[in-house]
């Protein structure tokens, strides 16, 4: 039965994959082991692809530049920005942030901006609060994504093994 679908499948055998490469070619039996091995440099894994141009990642905040006008708290849809009256500054709860970048647009002094960081989940709630990330010129360095992932697995691996 040679129909259009058969031709399409034959074509796909010779074509290179359309999607981005997976970290490893096949699903390993033990993911934690592979990540650990990758952290130690024993296994080569494909790095993640670059983020797109307009990507909206974890928010960054230059506390020194902020004038405390509170415009950002007025437009934040998720109420993720809270005002600290004593300091006349704000802080950003990234765990509530919906990454719309509306606050970065309304800020009159551009003290808020979106970074390219996207692996931001952690076990610590305080790590999700941005109080001050310094000046924009010396941008937040790119986190080494895979080792940090491996470390996270490492800490939780013994529990998984014992259960």
């Amino acid at each position: 039965m040679l129909n259009r679908m058969t031709l399409q499948i034959l074509k796909q055998v010779v074509e290179k994959p359309f999607t981005n490469l997976f970290p490893v070619p096949h699903m390993p039996d033990n993911l934690g082991e592979v990540l650990k091995a990758a952290a130690e440099g024993r296994v080569q894994i494909n790095p993640p692809v670059e983020v797109p141009k307009h990507f909206r990642g974890k928010i960054a905040y230059d506390k020194g530049k902020c004038i405390g006008c509170r415009l950002c708290t007025r437009v934040c849809p998720a109420n993720a920005i809270t005002y600290i009256p004593e300091e006349k500054k704000v802080m950003v709860h990234v765990d509530r942030c919906c990454f719309c970048a509306q606050c970065t647009e309304i800020c009159p002094v551009q003290c808020l901006w979106m970074t390219e960081e996207f692996l931001i989940s952690s076990y610590d709630r305080k790590a999700q609060v941005v109080v001050d990330s310094g000046k924009k010129a010396e941008e937040v360095p790119q986190v080494e994504r895979i080792p940090s992932e491996a470390q996270r697995v490492e800490t939780s691996a013994p529990e998984a093994a014992s259960s």
Binding site: K53, H54, F55, R56, A101
Partner: peptide, 19 residues
């Protein structure tokens, strides 16, 4: 579908909830 998702990502920065 992957192609249109790529274009949406290139234009808006996100694959869903383009903003």
């Amino acid at each position: 579908r992957e192609k249109v998702m790529d274009v949406l990502e290139a234009m808006s920065g996100n694959r869903v909830n383009y903003g």
